[in-house]
């Protein structure tokens, strides 16, 4: 597995994310995956060879294959042995990877699936909320992260392939998942359980920092007094604040993502757009064209200057 220093998006290059693990909760599964893929290919070749013999083989070979003994060996004994081995491997791996074993020193984050974005609560060791954010998760490398997964409306599923398997987010219960990144980088994920409408556009990013960078990031989480001005006025007077919170301002809506640090996010619209003033303005003007069905109405009433003002203001919320 290559060690990539740069943030690398999911896919696009070899190896694909499931086969390109970046932490201890995905690495053993990749080993398993390779064993299964290669083993499966070998078994397929053996069956093809058997079929080839049955169709074109010499009389002697065909006679060996054409009896109940061959059925017992190929159809029963061989699978029984292989499957028993696989089962033991699988059971051991399941218990070592599942979040039933908690050391207690994991970083804790509660993530709530919403139609069609993610609410992120950073918790302290006692489960109290320290910080609220949306659609991306910042973690330090080398430290396990315990995710407490819940859903606000329908069932979603959290999946960042390079960091671990997926786990469903089900209303009424809290599921736990362990992930960890051993190398700094940006790791993409996407909702894996069909949740209606724009399920296809419900992305997520995990940003893993080296420990000193993570400390710097944490320190930057106190809301800076971004210059308010016209952008903030428009934000407050146009109804945006009914759904969004910007700490340090009167905006305290809870229905949509917290925007206190929206300017520093890697993406907009839950993992689907790069974040810059232009995309910000475009999203505000007509998010329905970009992500049809999402819960934010299009704000076509803004003219260009107003959009720029709001976009610049939000982009400055680092």
């Amino acid at each position: 597995m290559n060690n990539r220093a740069d943030p690398v998006p999911i896919g696009g290059s070899w190896p694909p994310p499931v086969l390109d693990p970046a932490g201890p909760f995905s690495e053993p599964v990749t080993t398993l995956a390779w064993a299964l893929l290669i083993g499966g290919a070998v078994v397929l070749l053996v069956v093809l060879a058997a079929l080839g013999i049955a169709l074109f083989g010499s009389a002697r070979l065909k006679a060996r294959l054409g009896g109940e003994k061959a059925i017992w060996i190929g159809g029963f004994a061989f699978p029984a042995v292989v499957l028993t081995g696989l089962l033991i491997w699988g059971l051991m791996l399941t218990s070592s990877l599942s979040a039933t074993r908690i050391a207690g020193d994991e970083m804790r984050v509660r993530i709530v699936g919403e139609m069609w974005w993610w609410r992120v609560h950073y918790l302290d060791g006692d489960g109290r909320e320290m910080l609220r954010d949306a659609n991306e998760l910042h973690i330090p490398v080398g430290r396990p992260v315990l995710l407490e997964l819940d859903a606000a409306d329908v069932i979603h599923s959290f999946w960042v392939p390079r960091l671990g398997g997926k786990m469903d987010m089900i209303p009424g219960r809290t599921n736990r998942l362990l992930i960890q990144a051993d190398r700094p980088g940006v790791y993409k994920g996407q909702c894996a359980e069909y949740c209606g409408g724009p399920h296809a556009l419900m992305g997520f990013v995990v940003i893993a920092h080296a420990p000193e960078d993570f400390a710097r990031w944490q320190a930057s989480r106190t809301p800076a007094a971004a210059a308010g001005g016209r952008g903030l006025d428009l934000f407050l007077s146009s109804g945006c604040a009914a759904c969004h919170t910007i700490r340090g301002t009167p905006a305290n809506g809870l229905a949509g993502p917290d925007l206190t640090h929206v300017g520093s996010r890697h993406t907009l619209g839950a993992g689907i757009l790069p974040n810059n003033p232009g995309t910000m303005a475009g999203w505000i003007a007509d998010s329905q064209a970009i992500k049809p069905g999402n819960r934010m109405p299009a704000y076509r009433q803004f003219d260009g200057a107003e959009l720029r003002a709001i976009g610049d203001y939000l982009a400055a919320l680092k």
Binding site: V29, L36, G90, E193
Partner: peptide
């Protein structure tokens, strides 16, 4: 054969859905 693969719980955690 791919069915046997996804019968393995940890592999299914990745490949499910």
């Amino acid at each position: 054969l791919t069915g046997v693969m996804v019968a393995m719980v940890p592999f299914d955690w990745q490949m499910h859905d």
